[in-house]
Amino acid sequence: MKPTHPGHLAALLVVVALIFWAAVRHFYGAFLLPWTAIPTVLLLALGEGYSGWVTKARIARKPDTKPVEPLAVARLAALAKASAYAGAVFAGIFAGFAAYTLELFDRETPRSEFFVAAGSFVACVVLVCAALYLEHCCRIPKDSDDRNSD
């Protein structure tokens, strides 16, 4: 499995944002934005960031840590990759919605929906960053013997 490329995630975010912005223009009243997405996604990001921190310490065999199972690391890496792509897609959805409601910012309802969409976008970007960090922490460290033989 190759590491996730942040450029691919950014391109996915932009494409989804443009598609969703076009969809919201025609179906604005049909979409509901839950404000509860913000704390939920932030808690997911916190969990992935903490998992990355703990996994990195366990892989490095820091004192007072248990050895990590290789299969567990592979599962965490798969979770990180899935979270990064899902976070980029949802960030694109919220960015498209925020871009459309920004045009209607002088009205009260679209203004409040803009803040929910913008907050959800930021939370999704934080999730993507935490997922990339978790994926980075799942890498196998280079041994000192390997560096000396090069």
Rank of each mutant, 00 (worst) to 15 (best):
V16T: 15
G49R: 06
R139N: 14
D64P: 08
Y50M: 13
L79D: 12
H5P: 04
R139W: 00
R139L: 06
K66G: 07
A37H: 01
R58S: 10
K62L: 14
V24T: 13
A88M: 05
L46M: 07
Y133H: 12
K62C: 10
F27H: 11
F97E: 09
L33I: 01
L33F: 13
S144V: 09
R139E: 13
W21N: 10
I59Y: 07
A84D: 05
L44C: 13
A84P: 06
Y50K: 09
G92K: 02
V73L: 05
K62V: 11
E113S: 12
L44W: 06
A98D: 03
A23Q: 12
G29T: 03
T55H: 06
R107S: 13
A88G: 01
A11I: 09
A82H: 01
S120P: 01
A11Q: 12
A84F: 02
A131F: 09
S120Q: 03
V14P: 00
V24E: 09
Y85D: 00
L32G: 11
L46E: 09
A30E: 07
F20L: 11
A99E: 05
V126N: 06
R147D: 08
L76H: 02
V116L: 11
G7Y: 09
A10K: 10
E113F: 14
R25T: 04
L13E: 12
D146Y: 07
F105M: 13
A88D: 00
A22C: 07
A86C: 06
T65L: 11
I59W: 11
T4Y: 07
A80Q: 07
K142Y: 09
W53M: 14
D150P: 02
A99D: 08
R75S: 15
K142E: 10
A30Q: 05
P39Y: 01
S51L: 11
L43E: 07
F97A: 14
Y85T: 07
A99G: 09
P70F: 01
E69V: 12
L102E: 09
A118D: 04
L71V: 15
I140W: 06
P110M: 10
L134W: 02
V125P: 03
V122I: 13
A30F: 07
V89Y: 00
H8I: 13
R139C: 08
A17E: 03
E48T: 12
F20H: 11
L102D: 12
C124Q: 04
L12W: 01
G29M: 00
G7K: 10
A57L: 11
A117Q: 02
V89Q: 00
Y28D: 13
G29E: 06
P6R: 00
K81E: 08
F114E: 01
P141A: 02
V68A: 10
C129W: 06
